[in-house]
Each structure stands twice: as structure tokens, then as C-alpha cells.
Design a binder for these strands. Structure first.
Lengths: 336, 336
DNA sequence: GTGAAAGCGCTAACAG
DNA sequence: CTGTTAGCGCTTTCAC
């Protein structure tokens, strides 16, 4: 019926030739710019379809937008992050933006390479999910691309922040355990976590320490090892070491699952509370009490903020989302 | 000490100026091309560091490589896919390539938009993880970028294939259940799954049907609904509908978890076997018998094949990975 | 309403 | 061994 499309990818030039107009005209149709007659729009659109034309993102990137939003993710195996992505995907639905994810490399300072890779690829907006990167570096990045920090409570005017209320969450968890009558409560968190750092786990750790101290109790930290299954291993060591803890506050649900494995194997009686309320936490096999963060809403909000920035907003927005305790069977009064 | 770096991103031009050489010279150093003196390399490298130079991927894309490998992923909440990504990441470690992920959009034909988005972004290689896209479309894509199909046993010469042996896996699962004495065995799979399609679940379904038929038994399919938790809902309906099944073969572990939730809630006695052996399957809370696919090795292999293609290989490679049954407590003989 | 032309940052062919 | 040059496909003035 029509000429076969060229073997190489059609360019704006090909479309222009086929529609009998100039390249600029095609570009205008493409960008919905001002000053195109209906007739021309028709012809150009038809030509695009016939040639199966798709604009080159690279060429566009040289001049302006890439229509790409990037998310740097620290840990694919933590299901909380899939909640974020789900929300972000939903928020982008119907917009011309495409989402791409870059997994953080492991190790200290992780996330930096992924963030740089995304910047190099000229994403129009960037969500950094609690990377272990200093604020200076982030501010530098934010100077060249709209940035939303997810999870960290950085106090900066250079980029937006979307985070859960880790202080309130930590407090909820501890009050719940206290209310059940626990006094020997351990906390499972990253090794060498600094309670004063801006990371999500820092806030939870800080609240744990504060709550224990206020109650006149002795804190007991179970630090993650670098074994293959760090949370399992940390719990196993603690149990083998003869811990007297009757309850464990895990910094997030995946860590709680690992600890529960060790607890189950040892036949120990230790209540466990997690954080994030991932999908499996409500599964009867776990029935894990957890502090729920609205991951989907937070992910969606992060993307909205980015689009606002792209549209011109310049003042920073910092939003803290409320958390909610989900009580389940994994926490119960101490035995005896 | 030295001039402050320009506020805009440094370009190859800036580096050349600072090092007192030509752009071409810088480009050569960058690409490790032939014909650069050691002294020059020194100066150029120093200039790059001082200016904090990073090559523009977009500009490179206009001429050649992007040093980017893309993976289209169907479902972030299925932990098997994180095994693939882990393997791919490891295989790319130490190479100049960066991994980016694009989640498939939900719905039928899913994966297509994500694949196109990755092609538009000119990835140097593309891993398609069992998308619901026809071979024609994939061959078209493969014409413009090295493509590895993951999971699907497509019989094509246009792209490479890395897949698990779903036939053997399905057989292993069924033989295990038969050996335990089960005869009323249900299969939990996608709604309207076609046993003759090239999708991973198709092969498992086909084996299920074949095994049941060979044994003179009546197949019983539990199709996923489109409820919020489809596998849970499917199992709940089957149980409420008075199924007499004593065992369930779930097309993958996440589906198995959902079904186990319904089974636990109903207090039913149904053995469950899954597929993929994700990390949580061995957790004592589940102890899920599962057919293990070597996801990490497969993901790493997919990336290796891509790099081989980038390096010039043209003949297609099809690799089928062996699977292995992991027997755990979730499968036991039928009661009575 | 439409088109011509410049240029984004890079690579590769070629000339010195 | 080093430098010059011609584009890659697009957006964006600025004339017509």
C-alpha cells in the first residue's frame, strides 16, 4: 500500500519529507507547539504512523527533555521499595514520562554510582531512595536536575523531601512493646548505624535508644553481620550468645523475617515488630506486627513533586508522612 | 588552587582546552583508542579530574554506544526477578556498562511499552524478561538492538534465549506430588493461560495437564482472579467452592504464598508446591517445597550473552538451565 | 503558518 | 602521534 518503512529508524527528516513539510513543522507537531494548522497536523501525524516514527531520546536530550524520570533504589529485595515504585508508576501513568530504575551498588556510599548514572542519562527528574551519600553530593546533583530525596529527613533547600515519620514510628513500636509488658527489648539494625545520621534507620534507632533510656532500661543492639543472610545471622548470634531479650524491634520487615527464621529455628520466644508493613507481613505465616508507611502514596507524591519542579517550581517542599501501627500476632506479652 | 569548574557541566571541549590538546585527543583517551602518548593521557586524565568531567551519554548515543544495558521486568513484587537482577548486576561489575530497569506496565501485551522505552533510550543491549509480546515485535526490536529473551523458549534465530527448563520443572513437581500419593492435584496459574504459548507458565501448565492426563486424573485449574491479591482470592474461591484437591502446584512461589494464606485461613489441609525457590520459600514460616531455578546464574548469563553480541557475535544462542526440586514441609502425603 | 539554519557533545575518518 | 572536520537527530530562534 505505502512505501515500506526504511530499515533504519525513521527520523524527523523522513517524516517531514513524507508529509511534505519542513523538519521544524514536524517538531512543532511533536511538541504540540503553537502555530500548526489542523491540516498540517493531520498530514504529519499520518506520516509518523506510516513510518512508525519514534523520536530519538538522545537527540532530544541534546537540546531539552528526555521525558524520563529515574529512581535510584537501594535494595530490590526489600519489598517496601516495590511499594514506592508502584506508586510512582501510577503517578506517571498518562504523562509522557517514562520511569527507569537504577539499583544501587552495594557497599558504603552506595547509591552514588546509580545516581550519577541517572544524571549522566539526563533524566528530567530523580528520586533518590535513602542513599548513603552526603548532602553535599546531593546538593551538587540537585543543581543539575530536580531531585526528591525519599526517606531521609535532610534539611536542605536544594531539593524536595518525602519521608515517613520515623520518630513517630519508632515511638509507636516501642510504646506497643512497653504496653505489652516487655522490658528487655533488642533492636536489629545496620551495623554501626549512627543514631544522628539522616537515614531512616537512624531515626528508628534514635527513638529506640531514647525510649529505652527514658524507661531506665538497657539498650541491646543486634547489628547486622555481613553473612549471606545478615538479619538471620545477627539474630542467631544473639540467641546463641544467650540474649535475655523478650522482644525485638527490627528496623524493617525484611530484617524481621530474617530474625524470625533464627527465632523459629532456635525455638525461642521473642516477640518481633517490624517496620514498613510489606505485603507478606500480614500473611498468617508471619502475622508480623509492623509500622505501616504509605509507600505507594509516598512514591506517587515524590513523582508529583518532580513534575512540579519540571513545570517550574523552585522552592523546596518537605513532606513527612504519618505512619500507623498494625498489631498482629508476632507481638504478645512476655512469657511468665 | 585551580580554576573553579564551570557551573555548567564540563564538556569534552573544556577538557581539551584545559589539557591543551584537541577534542579528538580527549575522545581517544576516553575510549582507550589507539595512538595516544603516555604524556598526553596523563594531562588529559588530570584535566578530566579537575573539571569533574563526565561524558554526555546523549551525545555518545548520537554516534555510538550508551554503555547501558536495559532489563524489562514484568513484576517487581516477584522476588525471583530480583535474583535475575542480582546476577546481572554482578556480571556487569567491572565493565563500563550501567544497568537500568524498566518495569512492565500492567495489562495484556505488557512489557511492550517498557521494551520500546528502553529501545528509544538506545540501550546497547536489552534483556526482556518473559514479556507478553509476540515474536514478530521482538524480532523487530532485535533488529535494532542485541536482545536476550529471558524465560521464554522462543524458537528464533534473531535473538538469544536464556530460560529455565519449565518442562522438566513441571514434571519434577508433579512426580513429587504423585510420589507422595496425591491424586487430586490443582494448578494455580494465570487466567486463560495457553498451554501452547511460549511463556514460562505455559510450559508448567502443559506439564501439569500432561501429567494428570497420563495418570488418568482430572485436571483442576485455579485461575487467578483480578482481585487485589489474585492468588489468595483464587485459592479462597476454590476452597469455598468445595474443592477436593489435596495438593496444589502453584506456577510460582509468590502465587504459592497467596494460596497458603487462603489455605491457612480456611484451615484446609492442602499440600503446596511452588516454583522458583525465592529466598522466603525456605523460611520456616513457609517451608515451601519449590522448583529452584538458578536465577542469579541465568541473569548473569543473559548479560554475558549481550556483551558477546555487542562484541560482534551474530549467531543466536539458546540456553536452557536445569532446575532442581527443593523438598520442604509444605508437601506431605494426603491425609487418611 | 511555515521553513532555513545553527548548534547541543560526541565519534570517526582523514589529513598532517 | 595529533588535529580538523563532518555529521548524528533534534529543538529553537528568526526570517519569510
Amino acid at each position: 500500500m505505502t512505501d515500506a518503512p526504511p530499515p533504519r529508524r525513521a527520523t524527523i527528516e523522513d517524516v517531514a519529507a513524507r508529509a511534505g513539510v519542513s523538519r521544524a513543522a514536524v517538531s512543532k507537531v511533536l511538541r504540540d507547539a503553537y502555530g500548526v494548522s489542523d491540516a498540517m497536523r493531520q498530514r504529519v501525524t499520518a506520516a509518523m504512523t506510516e513510518l512508525n516514527y519514534r523520536p530519538s531520546i538522545a537527540a532530544r536530550a541534546m537540546r531539552g527533555r528526555t521525558y524520563t524520570i529515574g529512581i535510584e533504589l537501594p535494595d530490590l529485595s526489600n519489598q517496601f521499595f516495590t511499594r514506592i515504585v508502584r506508586g510512582a508508576t501510577a503517578a506517571l501513568d498518562g504523562t509522557p514520562y517514562q520511569l527507569i530504575l537504577a539499583p544501587a551498588e552495594p557497599g558504603s556510599g552506595y547509591g552514588y554510582r546509580a545516581l550519577e548514572a541517572l544524571v549522566d542519562r539526563q533524566v528530567d527528574g530523580l528520586v533518590a531512595v535513602s542513599p548513603r551519600v552526603d548532602e553535599d553530593a546531593l546538593e551538587r546533583i540537585a543543581a543539575s536536575v530536580p531531585l526528591v530525596m525519599f526517606g531521609r529527613l535532610d534539611r536542605t533547600e536544594r531539593y524536595d523531601v518525602v519521608a515517613g515519620d520515623d520518630i513517630a514510628g519508632g515511638r509507636l513500636a516501642m510504646e506497643h512493646l512497653f504496653a505489652l509488658g516487655h522490658t528487655r527489648i533488642a533492636h536489629l539494625t545496620l551495623r554501626d548505624e549512627d543514631p544522628d545520621a539522616p537515614f531512616p534507620h537512624s531515626g528508628r534507632l534514635r527513638e529506640y535508644l531514647a525510649a529505652m533510656t527514658e524507661a531506665g532500661l538497657e539498650p541491646e543492639i543486634w547489628p547486622l553481620s555481613d553473612a549471606e543472610d545478615p538479619s538471620y545471622d545477627a539474630a542467631r548470634r544473639a540467641i546463641e550468645g544467650g540474649t535475655r531479650a523478650t522482644a525485638l524491634f527490627a528496623a524493617h520487615d525484611e530484617l524481621a523475617f530474617g530474625a524470625m527464621r533464627a527465632i523459629a529455628e532456635a525455638g525461642a520466644d521473642i516477640s518481633v515488630i517490624g517496620y514498613d508493613d510489606v505485603a507478606l507481613s500480614s500473611h498468617p505465616a508471619f502475622s508480623l506486627t509492623s509500622v505501616d508507611q504509605p509507600g505507594e502514596r509516598m512514591g506517587a507524591r515524590a513523582v508529583e513533586l518532580l513534575l512540579e519542579r519540571v513545570a517550574g517550581r523552585t522552592e523546596a517542599v518537605h513532606e513527612v508522612f504519618p505512619v500507623e501501627l498494625k498489631v498482629r500476632a508476632s507481638t504478645r506479652p512476655p512469657r511468665a
